[in-house]
Design a protein around this nucleic acid. Structure first.
Length: 517
RNA sequence: GGGCCCGUAGCUCAGCUGGUAGAGCAACGGACUUUUAAUCCGUAGGUCGGAGGUUCGAAUCCUCCCGGGCUCACCA
């Protein structure tokens, strides 16, 4: 293999560097400048007049980074080094660094991909590119494997995800996605902190996985000899904190759901959930609008209220549209709200008409939800709050004032996707107990995702949880929206992939075939 | 899990109406002191994802398997 040969050649170069007294894996290097900052400060191309007048700083700069390209032209050479901030060209001449170093070290032992330190001064080439004239070059880390191609980068999606570090080295726009991700998370914290919320950490290993409708991952805790679950949501723990007297809490972290992987689902994903005492879902809608305004200001620039996602303009002008769950569904189905709530036959007929799979097996309100997902959600392109959901599919939300069949709940949809989910929280222990029991019945009927009964949570509510509103936002999908990405994998540094089978033939023969479930 | 598509050199890709593999970049040797997808001359590099099958002959056709992408289902 060509790669094997390159590996061998480079390992030899490591030895030769050592022989010549260089450390191929150095310890430290004093850096006083960043490529990106220099480029930003001194611009890239200038008119001739400007260039004549231009005075670049004469002080010696030292930078460190990875060599990304190289053009050797006899007794001088150009190369680009890339640090975290960007890529700057360097110029090295035999007569400046010495013939020995230039011929024996630079030309023979330094490769594209190596990490080096360079010291020198800035100048501008004939074509106007800002360039560092190298007075000294120090090898810092030898790279043994060849980098992907300089022009086309790395395109193979599988390789990009499995070896994300290569993707990050070679595709600068990928680094930007993750910078944005970090910023989104940071700014959400800032927003909540500034409003008096405290960030808390609740268990990821839970004896009962509740708080959402999803299948959990199971693991075993040896010391207690019990099975525990990776949390599917932190909700019930956060509410216990409100019982305990914290009035504004939030948690930003991972949830785990043992379900399919797709462009919109990763088994571990990041959520922020916050709970605010003495508030209801109306307050949260306003707060959500404010949060979006804040994020847009911080990420896209002050006052920006429109972004483009997958070729569609999305406007975040307040107030966001508000529609009622049943009202909208009534418009789309032609059934009245009364029929949607109570006429099982008509709803079933409609579900069948739309070709909803296994419609017969679903409970009435699951069918209604199916209708909603099929008919309403795809049309919610601009930010829209859907409000007042049926009680039966919202076991943790409080009854709507004036309508006991609905709950005070909203979901925020953008581009047909659910971004946020919020309720006026149910804090009546007796009713919560009944709702849990209903979930148990659903479970008994075969709904694997019905919510688990959490008796300790009921006990907590019996001590009294203040009136509270709570909301959760899926961070990954939010980042997708802000980075214009259509796959969740593009916004996860290391998305879940099936492990590669990388075994020798012998090992594979010994390994038993995995049985299909 | 179902459907459709993809897997050829380290990377990006050609070759696919069957006749045992090509290019550019990267690598190696050489020329070149302001190049920038540097250029020029030369060299090396592949069990064509894996296993079977059809055939005189398979990267190419068929089957199964592995991995990936999109999509549907479940969900956030």
């Amino acid at each position: 293999m060509a790669e094997e040969r390159i590996l061998e050649q480079r390992k030899e170069k490591v030895e030769k560097l050592k022989e010549l007294g260089y450390e191929p894996y150095a310890y430290r290097y004093e850096v006083n400048a960043k490529a990106g900052e220099l480029l930003q400060r001194f611009g890239k191309v200038k008119s001739e007049e400007e260039r004549e007048k231009e005075e670049l700083p004469k002080d010696e700069l030292s930078l460190a980074g990875r060599i990304m390209s190289m053009r050797i032209m006899g007794k001088a050479a150009f190369f680009h080094i890339q640090d975290e901030s960007g890529r700057i060209q360097c110029y090295i001449r035999r007569d400046t660094v010495g013939a020995d170093f230039y011929n024996k070290v630079f030309k023979k032992l330094i490769d594209i991909g190596d990490i080096v330190g360079v010291r020198g001064t800035l100048f501008r080439t004939r074509t106007g590119e800002l360039t560092l004239e190298v007075k000294e070059l120090i090898p810092l880390t030898k790279s043994l494997r060849p980098l992907p191609e300089k022009w086309h980068g790395l395109k193979d999606t599988e390789k990009r995800y499995r070896q994300r570090y290569l993707d990050l080295i070679v595709n600068p726009e990928v680094r930007d996605i993750f910078r944005t991700r970090t910023k989104v998370i940071k700014k959400i914290r800032e927003f909540l902190d500034s409003r008096g919320f405290i960030e808390v950490e609740t268990p990821i290993l839970q004896p009962i996985a509740s708080g959402a409708a999803a299948r959990p991952f199971i693991t075993h805790y040896n010391a207690l000899d019990i099975d525990v679950y990776l949390r599917i949501a932190p909700e019930l723990y956060l509410k216990r904190l409100l019982v305990g007297g914290f009035e504004r809490v939030y948690e930003l972290g991972k949830n785990f759901r043992n379900e399919g992987i797709s462009t919109r689902h990763n088994p571990e994903f990041t959520m922020v959930e916050w709970y605010m005492a003495y508030a209801d879902y109306n307050d949260l809608m306003e707060m959500t609008e404010e949060l979006f305004e804040f994020l847009l200001d911080e990420i896209f620039g002050k006052g920006v209220r429109e972004i483009e996602y997958q070729g569609t303009k999305i406007s975040f002008e307040r107030p966001f549209r508000r529609i009622s769950y049943l009202g909208e569904l009534s418009k789309k189905t032609g059934l009245t709200e009364e029929e949607l709530l109570h006429d099982e036959e008509k709803v079933l007929a409609k579900a069948k008409e739309l070709g909803i799979e296994k419609a017969e097996e679903l409970s009435h309100f699951k069918r209604v939800q199916e209708l909603f997902e099929a008919l309403v959600e795809p049309e919610l392109i601009q930010p829209t709050f859907v409000i007042d959901f049926p009680k039966a599919i919202s076991p943790l939300a409080k009854e709507k004032r004036g309508n006991p069949e609905l709950v005070e709940r909203f979901e925020l949809f953008i581009f047909g996707r659910e971004i946020a989910n919020a309720y006026t929280e149910l804090n009546n222990p007796k009713e919560q107990e009944e709702r849990f029991k209903q979930q148990l019945e659903e479970k008994a009927k075969g709904d694997e995702e019905a919510m688990e009964y959490d008796a300790d949570f009921i006990t907590a509510l019996e001590y009294g949880m203040p009136p509270t509103a709570g909301e959760g936002i899926g961070i990954d999908r939010l980042v997708m929206l802000f980075t214009d990405k259509d796959s969740i994998r593009e916004v996860l540094l290391f998305p879940q992939l099936r492990p590669e089978k990388r075994c020798g033939e012998e090992i594979c023969e010994v390994e038993p075939e995995k049985k299909e479930e």
